[in-house]
Design a protein around this nucleic acid. Structure first.
Length: 222
DNA sequence: TCATTAAATTGTT
DNA sequence: AACAATTTAATGA
């Protein structure tokens, strides 16, 4: 892939021109259809992965057969550094919820950037820190808050400007997928979305949600 | 391009 | 979990 093609990714601004050229040579673009698996738990998938367009979920199936979704990654988001760094099999399934275009960076390029680029490491630390904060917040509010507020915060999470910088306040997700993400029933999602829409925070469409006020969404119920 | 049908998604109980 | 209603996508004339 040419350097110009990755100038717009979130971490490109942290790299020198030289580093950017090196990085771009290790990146390829690939598309995944709606519902298709990037990889299954236990698979090797040795790419650091960025979402150009679409939505990817990290999930797994419990022994009981219940599907659990841990996180969604939207446009502009990058994930998988853990598995690439440690050269481990993936611990979760990765599924494209919608038609999705991805950028895949091979492991040797990723490793090279980690070992040679100060800017790249700065980016990684920022991103890891933000994600950790999100997960801590998530476990906290999943135990404390009403279902409505949980739906609201997961929506806010999906358009977090640090983790998913290109989402730009429009999330293309079905209510069913959102219910898996927020760990509430689809009915609850449906009712919650109506409430949030009436409150003027979002607009609900078929297969998509427009976010008008991320900050209020993140605060909803407090 | 239009009409028909199937599939996906939503709204409700 | 089930059902009806609605919207979108696919198919073929």
């Amino acid at each position: 892939m040419k350097p110009e093609q990755i100038e717009s990714v979130i971490w490109a601004r942290d790299l020198s021109r030289e580093e950017l050229v090196r990085a771009s040579s290790g990146v390829v673009e690939r598309s995944f259809g709606k519902g298709s698996y990037l990889c299954h738990r236990g698979d090797r998938f040795d790419y650091w992965t960025g979402v150009v367009d679409g939505l990817v979920k990290m999930s797994s199936i419990a022994r009981s057969g219940k599907a659990i979704t841990f996180a969604g990654i939207g446009a502009g988001g990058w994930f998988g550094e853990g598995s690439v760094l440690k050269s481990e099999p993936r611990k979760y399934d990765l599924v494209a919820i919608r038609e999705t275009r991805l950028l895949l960076m091979n492991a040797s390029t990723f490793t090279w950037l980690c070992e040679n680029s100060v800017g790249f490491n700065r980016f990684l630390v920022r991103q890891l820190n933000e994600r950790l904060a999100q997960f801590i917040a998530a476990t906290e509010y999943d135990r404390l808050l009403a279902p409505e507020a949980r739906v609201a915060r997961h929506l806010a999470w999906l358009c977090n400007p640090i983790l998913n910088p290109d989402v730009h306040n429009r999330i293309e997700i079905t209510q069913e997928d959102l219910s898996l993400l927020a760990a509430v029933s689809r009915q609850t999602v449906n009712r919650s979305l109506s409430t949030l829409q009436t409150a003027g925070l979002i607009r609900v469409e078929r297969g998509a949600i427009d976010i008008f006020d991320v900050d209020k969404l993140a605060m909803f119920g407090n």
